[in-house]
């Protein structure tokens, strides 16, 4: 399938509250595009921002009130049966038959999809569960269940992998393994939509990211672009000069936003770094260091969602 793996437009979904409680709006016109070609797309948002509801809508577990969902160019949920063979999903905590072994659980799913039996052993090996594959699932730790969930999602060798917090319950080594597994899958052409709270994980593993809050898309695009968007229009530069006050005065006179920060100058809103070099040089000040100051994803996330989960209102899709 060559069409865009995921296209979501203006998706809305509200849940009925208990008794007379008002309906809770989980999705409020959410947009999401996940391009194919073996990319890992991060899906970030505070708790209750609509990430899981979006994934559930993609796989047909919940019906959206309005909006459009397409996977591989096909309308969901109407054409979902045609798409599902190419989609692996791990939504929230993986659920298995507790009194069956991990292998038996996978074998059932494998047989539902009509896949070759050997595929079960392959995915067990892939998630490092071969040794415990014949143990009952009720004896598995949270991390082992998570691995089994990832194994189940990989059974179909899907073109699109929907993963909702796949690192939940995993130890640091497990998290690292998942990260390298995702990169490897992406390298092999699998597109991954990764919903996660672990911002460092997203920053390290994702090519693109979509940040959502209150059921709306706040920012979307390549990770680098979203980060620079979060740091304001234009870039942010750290400048080291011999005379901090003179440098700050000069740059301010040139109309640049500048502030002293930890023995350096922090210049924001600069489209072209050579502007800083030129302005300072024309005043006889020669800088000793000029480095772009990138905000981390965590900072960007907090900036965009306003720390408490309230979006700042700047919606810019790059």
């Amino acid at each position: 399938m060559t069409a865009t793996p995921v296209e979501v437009r203006a998706l809305t979904k509200s849940y009925r509250g208990r008794l007379r409680a008002a309906r809770h709006k989980a999705l409020d016109g959410l947009d999401l595009t996940v391009d194919g070609g073996g990319r890992v797309h991060g899906f970030l948002g505070p708790n209750g921002s609509g990430k899981t509801t979006t994934l559930r809508a993609l796989i047909g577990l919940v019906r959206a009130d309005s909006g459009q969902v397409r996977m591989f160019g096909r309308s969901v949920p109407h054409e979902l049966p045609a798409v599902v063979p190419d989609v692996g999903a791990l939504i929230e905590a993986p659920q298995f038959f507790r009194n069956f072994s991990g292998r038996r659980n996978l074998r059932y799913l494998n047989d539902v999809a009509g896949l070759p039996p050997a595929r079960v052993d392959e995915v067990l090996e892939l998630v490092d569960l071969t040794d415990r594959a014949d143990d009952l699932v009720k004896g598995y730790s949270l991390g082992m269940r998570q691995r089994l969930g990832i194994a189940a999602a990989l059974l179909k060798q899907p073109g699109l992998l929907l993963l909702d917090e796949p690192s939940n319950g995993l130890d640091p080594a497990g998290i690292r393994d998942v990260r390298s597994l995702l990169r490897r899958l992406a390298g092999e052409g699998t597109t991954v939509l990764l919903s996660s709270h672990l911002l460092a994980e997203v920053e390290q593993v994702c090519d693109e990211v979509t940040i959502v809050a209150h059921g709306r898309t706040i920012a979307s695009g390549p990770v680098r672009d979203v980060l620079s968007q979060a740091s304001g229009s234009g870039g942010r530069l750290r400048v080291r000069v011999p005379d901090l006050q003179a440098g700050q005065r000069t740059l301010a006179l040139a109309g640049l936003a500048v502030a002293a920060d930890d023995g350096q100058l922090l210049v924001t809103g600069v489209d072209d770094p050579s502007t800083v070099t030129r302005v300072l040089a024309e005043s006889g000040i020669y800088l000793s260091e000029l480095t772009p100051d990138r905000v981390g994803l965590e900072e960007a996330f907090l900036l965009l969602t306003d720390e408490t989960g309230h979006e700042t209102g700047q919606k810019a899709t790059t």
């Binding site: 796989i59 047909g60 577990l61 949920p77 979902l80 049966p81 599902v84 999903a89 939504i91 905590a93 993986p94 659920q95 298995f96 038959f97 507790r98 799913l109 539902v112 999809a113 189940a152």
Partner: peptide, 14 residues
């Protein structure tokens, strides 16, 4: 109750 019905629906949405 176990959630496996929902899991199966991600394999067979009909």
């Amino acid at each position: 109750q176990a959630g496996t019905f929902a899991s199966l629906l991600t394999w067979e949405p009909r």
